[in-house]
């Protein structure tokens, strides 16, 4: 049974038909064609499928797509503004925080969720923000350093 689903994706209205009961990850990738979201385990375990739903981090593989009707979803594809990379993307490059890159989309979105709420995070805040995201390459330290750099680089709000 197909069902229609409509939501905002990176500030644009999108709509698609999906099999009823589909998870948000499959709908984003296969229904809408946003391949910036990655799937690793489809079990909620690896974190690479992390997206923001109404500003909060969610594991898209264990999120029922129909529960996102009318909501606002952010993925890595929406991070850069034209040719300008998001401070997190620049910091990840400069700190070599991506090796194979598989965890990177989820890490970036988990980190964005943190910085949107807490522009001056401590190292502990960063560790907690990415603790549901597995990286098998970097040993996490370059990622933590990149998120702290990005916080310093972003225009101060207070």
């Amino acid at each position: 049974m197909k069902t229609s689903i409509q939501f905002r994706l990176n500030d644009e209205e999108v709509a698609t038909f999906a099999d009823s009961g589909s998870n948000l990850l499959d709908v984003l990738r296969e229904g809408i064609g946003d391949l910036s979201v990655k799937g690793g385990c489809w079990q909620g375990t690896c974190g690479t499928c992390t997206v923001l739903v109404d500003g909060m981090p969610r594991l898209s593989c264990v999120t029922l797509a129909e529960s996102c009707e009318g909501k606002s979803i952010e993925t890595v594809a929406g991070l850069r503004q034209g040719a300008k990379l998001h401070p997190l993307q620049t910091a990840f490059m400069e700190r070599f925080a991506a090796q194979c890159g598989y965890c990177t989309p989820g890490m970036l979105m988990a980190a964005k969720a943190l910085l949107d709420r807490e522009p001056n995070p401590t190292r502990e805040n960063v560790v907690d923000a990415i603790c549901g995201n597995i990286c098998r390459c970097t040993g996490y330290e370059p990622i933590i350093a990149a998120v702290l750099d990005a916080a310093r680089a972003a225009p101060r709000r207070s």
Binding site: G47, T50, R58, C131
Partner: peptide, 8 residues
């Protein structure tokens, strides 16, 4: 869990 699990 982590923050994304706790949201749900």
């Amino acid at each position: 869990g982590g923050p994304a699990v706790r949201e749900a």
